[in-house]
Design a protein around this nucleic acid. Structure first.
Length: 519
DNA sequence: TTGTGTTTTATTGCCTCC
DNA sequence: GGAGGCAATAAAACACAA
């Protein structure tokens, strides 16, 4: 009833209406895992969010455009300086650079530009860093490649089991076989996806090929250090003296692709990977990260890498990765739906690292503050309700995921890039992040101070609670009356971008996932 | 307070695929 | 031809500096 009324009123009111924070959060999180909606998803989302399907479609459409636009911006801003590992770049991009520097579709003529673009490769954007991460998580990727766009490692495991023999990673099985005799990478050939008896069609086919090449490229660059049947990057290195790479780190702060740059064999990323590669260290690393968390932004990295950068680059790296897991977690011992709101900075945000950085600052805190000042109780109600709404949406989301897994037709027919694309975007935006850091610095400092003030013990609390805490600072005597309110009744966002764009910390999902892969 | 720039939302047209 | 997606555009909402 109310939903219908809302929709009617919305249609009557031609004036554009801003989505509520809860709606945006739900949309963002859903978008993180599903760039493209099925009819079912759309209708359910529309119902849950009390929006029209048209609005849902439109939002996702624009969201994709936004991603793409950000992508283009970051690529343009970073120029081609990060393309030192050209083979990877060009392979990944699907574009081949000829001797004159012009680009053309070479061996990738099989690729549908549209599909390539939707992978975030349209603008030559397939960084080594992306691929490094892809390689680290190729198990995860394989799931997506082989089964569904459902990013849940749990929900798609059955499909994966069916499609991949004994949980083997199709790309890890014979990585060297992907290399040409001269060590170069073979051209993309969709037909190559047949090796495992599983032949993804259309989108998934292309996707698999791209990742396939990407992963292979990284493995190639890792050379002998990569162990096919062992933990990722399972190489024992000599202990690196403290501060040995601080100089490099400083330089690399402005580079997003160094991870797989052969010119930097001792790059901090590699050393970090080394640490992460061995199970115990890796586990302890992220266990530490988890426990000390999410609130002490970057502080834990200080002991690992160096003072300032850890606060930014590595942490952002981690944060961004984690975000799209926030809605994909189906393991009971892992993140709850409420964890969706928890992030390392105290702001709620989604996948958009670079932009979120700004948004989280502006909207997440200051917007919140001003909002609180104006109407604190409303704000609390809004967020309290938002938590419930998100929780509710989580169920919706899980249901949809489950349905998707069960719907093999959907898997076959529906193109989806999902995590892969998210990953690409995340890393691309991450690169741009460094450019904005200076501008954001003062905000961050301010924010951190305030955070510490409100959360001195680093106790994991909902950002909503933090919102309350922040507001409480403004109005410490306010009593809150939490009432259940329909999403559509929520006050239009004042912190519209905050909840949807959390620079999250490493998700437990990923941690566990990686750990399990090590095991 | 106001002007300006940015972001978000809505609309429309075109294209591709089935 | 319909559905879905992308791109361009306009306009509202918002943020921010002067």
């Amino acid at each position: 009833m109310q939903s219908e009324e809302n929709k009617l009123s919305m249609e009557k009111n031609k004036k554009r209406r801003l989505k509520t924070p809860a709606q945006l959060t739900a949309l963002e999180n859903f978008y993180n895992d599903h760039k493209y909606l099925t009819e079912e998803m759309k209708s359910e989302l529309a119902e849950e969010l009390e929006l029209t399907e048209k609005q849902i479609s439109g939002w996702f459409c624009h969201r994709r455009l936004k991603d793409k636009k950000l992508m283009n911006d970051e690529v343009g801003a970073n120029g081609r300086q990060d393309r030192s590992s050209g083979v990877i770049q060009d392979r990944g991009s699907g574009l081949v650079q000829d001797s004159c520097g012009s680009t053309k579709h070479g061996d990738y003529r099989y690729l549908d530009p549209k599909e390539v673009e939707s992978h975030g490769l349209y603008n030559h954007e397939f960084s080594a860093a992306d691929m490094t991460y892809a390689q680290r998580n190729n198990h995860h990727y394989a799931e997506n490649d082989s089964a569904t766009d459902n990013t849940s490692s749990e929900s798609c495991s059955s499909l994966q089991d069916r499609l991949l023999p004994q949980g083997q990673d199709q790309y890890d099985m014979e990585p060297s076989s992907h290399l040409m005799p001269n060590g170069s990478l073979p051209p993309l050939n969709p037909k190559g996806a047949n090796n495992m008896g599983y032949k993804p069609s259309g989108y998934l086919k292309v996707k698999g090929e791209i990742e396939h090449v990407a992963i292979t490229a990284v493995k190639k660059q890792l050379g002998n250090h990569f162990q096919e049947d062992g933990p990722l990057l399972s190489v024992e290195f000599d202990t690196i003296p403290p501060g040995a790479f601080e100089g490099q780190i400083a330089d690399l702060a402005n580079e997003g692709y160094y991870a797989a740059n052969p010119a930097l064999p001792n790059s901090p990323e590699v050393s970090a990977a080394k640490k992460q590669s061995s199970g115990s260290r890796y586990d302890s690393y992220f266990t530490k990260l988890r426990s000390q968390d999410s609130h002490k932004e970057g502080s834990d990295f200080g002991s690992l890498h160096g003072p300032d950068l850890q606060d930014k680059k590595p942490h952002k790296h981690i944060n961004q990765r984690a975000s799209f897991h926030s809605f994909t977690n189906h393991l009971p011992h892992k993140n709850s739906s409420l964890d969706l709101y928890v992030d390392s900075t105290g702001e709620a945000s989604a996948y958009n690292g670079a932009k979120n950085h700004r948004m989280g600052t502006k909207h997440g805190f200051e917007g919140m503050r001003s909002d609180s000042a104006s109407n604190p109780s409303d704000h609390y109600e809004e967020n309290a309700v938002a938590v419930k709404q998100i929780d509710s949406l989580l169920h919706l989301y899980n249901n949809i995921n489950l349905k998707n897994v069960q719907k093999s037709e959907y898997v076959k027919s529906k193109p989806s890039n999902l995590v892969h694309k998210s990953q690409i975007y995340l890393n691309a935006e991450e690169k741009g992040l460094t450019k904005r850091m200076a501008k954001e610095e003062k905000f961050n400092g301010d924010r951190k101070l305030k955070k510490q003030y409100h959360d001195p013990d680093g106790i994991k609390v909902l950002s909503n609670e933090k919102m309350v805490a922040k507001r409480a600072k403004v109005d410490p005597f306010q009593q809150y009356d939490v009432k259940q309110t329909p999403v559509s009744d929520l006050e239009p966002r004042k912190v519209q971008r905050s909840a949807a764009e959390m620079p999250s910390s490493f998700s437990e999902d990923e941690t566990a996932e990686t750990s399990s892969s090590v095991d």
